[in-house]
Every structure is written in structure tokens, then in C-alpha cells.
């Protein structure tokens, strides 16, 4: 059942990606602060039912590939107070990512 229905992964570790800049209502697991920002795929975590659908008691299938994406803090926050190579790693589902 759920195990077989997964969307193919489009990205691999090291790929540059950009988070889609979109602002729907509803249950979204892509934080506001990271939309429109660019980062690098750290790893593919697997494929999981889409939480945007699970939130409404629907099955969330086919499963969405989920990645850990690494962003440089200085690319995320204006005037970041830290080191230039500090990072933030965030789990982001594939449908929120586009190739950079």
C-alpha cells in the first residue's frame, strides 16, 4: 500500500536548490523564513506522506521525497550575527523545492 506509492526523488546530496516562494493557507511544514532561499541538499531522508494532506485526514499519497537542505545563515538572515559559515539545516519536502 503506502510503501509502494512514492514520487521519484529529483535531487541528490550536493545539488543546489531553491525553496519555492509560496504563501498558501493550511498546514505547511516549510517555515516562512526559508521560502525563497537557496541551499544545498545535505541528504535524502526517504519519502513520507504529505503532511499538507495528512492534516485533513487524507492519506497524503503518493509519498513525497523529503530532504535535509543546508543553508548558510548569512543567506537566510540579513545582518546575521555569527560566523559566515554557520548553517541551518531544515527538512523540506520535494514539492517545495526547485532546481537552482
Amino acid at each position: 500500500m503506502a510503501e509502494t506509492e512514492a514520487i521519484a526523488a529529483l535531487f541528490k546530496a550536493g545539488d543546489c536548490v531553491r525553496v519555492r516562494e509560496a504563501y498558501p493557507i493550511g498546514h505547511v511544514r516549510t517555515p516562512y523564513y526559508i521560502r525563497g532561499k537557496s541551499g544545498v541538499i545535505e541528504r535524502l531522508c526517504g519519502a513520507y506522506p504529505n503532511p499538507e494532506e495528512l492534516a485533513y485526514a487524507r492519506p497524503g499519497l503518493p509519498r513525497q521525497p523529503l530532504y535535509r537542505v543546508r543553508f548558510r545563515q548569512t543567506d537566510v538572515w540579513q545582518g546575521y550575527r555569527g560566523k559566515g559559515d554557520d548553517t541551518v539545516d531544515i527538512e523540506i519536502y520535494q514539492h517545495w523545492l526547485q532546481a537552482q
Binding site: G26, H27, P51, E52, L54, A55, Y56, A57
Partner: peptide, 11 residues
């Protein structure tokens, strides 16, 4: 219940 339903209602 899914955890995401819980979260959606909290949100």
C-alpha cells in the same frame, strides 16, 4: 488522529 491534524488545529 494524525499528528498533522493535531498541529493544524493548534495552528
Amino acid at each position: 488522529l494524525t499528528v498533522d491534524e493535531l498541529r493544524r488545529n493548534i495552528e
